[in-house]
């Protein structure tokens, strides 16, 4: 094992440009994933914060009678998605409107009759605030005879979900593309390393070194390259994160589990690329 490690490190000294380039490509590919990861993570945070406040509001007809409304409230309270149900009378709605829309209080104050409808505000349990769940509850509320209209901010909920999906897809596609390029460069680096050590490999085989023993230094080289690349990517992503602190965006750093996964991914790309390359190129040496 010491032999393999020593030889792997020698390879870095022998071809620093090529191994440096391999590490840089892995770093670039994971940096792209890291940046989009940062976006995706923060979008998710926002979505979660918003989702926790998602309410479905059913506006009632003026002819709804209180017995019906009470029964409906009881029923709605039994839906599995629902955390709470609150009846807002017309008077209460007007009071809230006056309070929240201060600049219009003059208009409201001069009204002869109250134009606002009564409503039932339904808050949802956490974990039940996805677009489908929200739409499902809204649809059921519409079925009540006395419900005039249902609102739940459907359009922007959809938009925020699309944004998250796009961010995830873009990071995966670009990241995979760069990772493939990184794998090719690692392959070239291993090929050079194999040919630089052609004589040694011939003699190793001559005296009965096992194939695994011959391969090991190259595979370790790939693994170390991948790890260096991954650490560089984390560093670059962190620098971007640092530069965004103090900007209008309230931004959060990636969770530790994502960072571990990123470093593991870098090591894995390096490992697999070198395993494939060394297997192929060793066959070229008799």
């Amino acid at each position: 094992m010491m032999y393999a490690l020593r030889e792997a490190l020698t390879a870095f000294r022998r071809a620093p440009v090529l191994t440096g380039l391999s590490a840089a490509m892995i770093a670039l590919s994971l940096f792209v994933v890291g940046l989009f990861g940062l976006v995706a993570h923060n979008v998710r945070e926002v979505i979660q914060r918003v989702e926790s406040r998602v309410q479905v509001v059913a506006y009632l007809r003026d002819d709804a009678n209180s017995a019906e409304v009470n029964e409906a409230q009881r029923q709605i309270g039994t839906y599995e998605e629902v955390a709470g149900v609150r009846y807002v009378s017309r008077e209460e709605a007007l009071a809230i409107a006056k309070q929240e829309l201060d600049e219009l209080s003059g208009i409201f104050g001069n009204l002869e009759s109250n134009p606002l409808p009564a409503s039932i505000e339904v808050s949802l349990k956490s974990g039940q605030t996805g677009a489908d769940a929200v739409r499902g509850v809204a649809d059921r509320l519409r079925n009540f005879r006395f419900v005039e209209d249902v609102r739940y901010g459907d359009d922007w909920i959809e938009k925020i979900f699309v944004l998250r999906r796009v961010a995830a897809m873009a990071s995966l596609t670009l990241g995979a593309g760069f990772a493939a390029v990184a794998a090719l460069i690692i392959g070239a680096a291993i090929r050079m390393a194999v040919f630089a050590r052609r004589d040694e490999i011939t003699i190793m085989r001559l005296v009965g070194a096992t194939d695994a023993f011959v391969r090991r230094p190259f595979i370790i080289e790939g693994l170390i390259t991948g790890l260096i690349g991954a650490v560089l990517a984390v560093l670059a992503t962190w620098l971007v994160f640092r530069s965004l602190i103090g900007s209008p965006f309230e931004i959060q750093w990636l969770p530790a589990s994502w960072l571990y996964a990123g470093v593991a991914a870098g090591a894995l790309v390096g490992l697999l690329a070198s395993m494939v390359a060394v297997r192929r190129h060793l066959r070229e040496i008799v």
Binding site: Y3, I203, V207, G208
Partner: peptide, 29 residues
């Protein structure tokens, strides 16, 4: 192959390694 020694016309020694290292290399691997 560990039971077979092989000697060639062109020696096939590793040029960057000393005499002792060339012999040691075969044992190391």
């Amino acid at each position: 192959r560990r039971k077979i020694g092989y000697v060639f016309q062109d020696f096939r020694l590793l040029q960057q390694r000393t005499a002792a290292e060339n012999i040691a290399f075969a044992l190391e691997v």
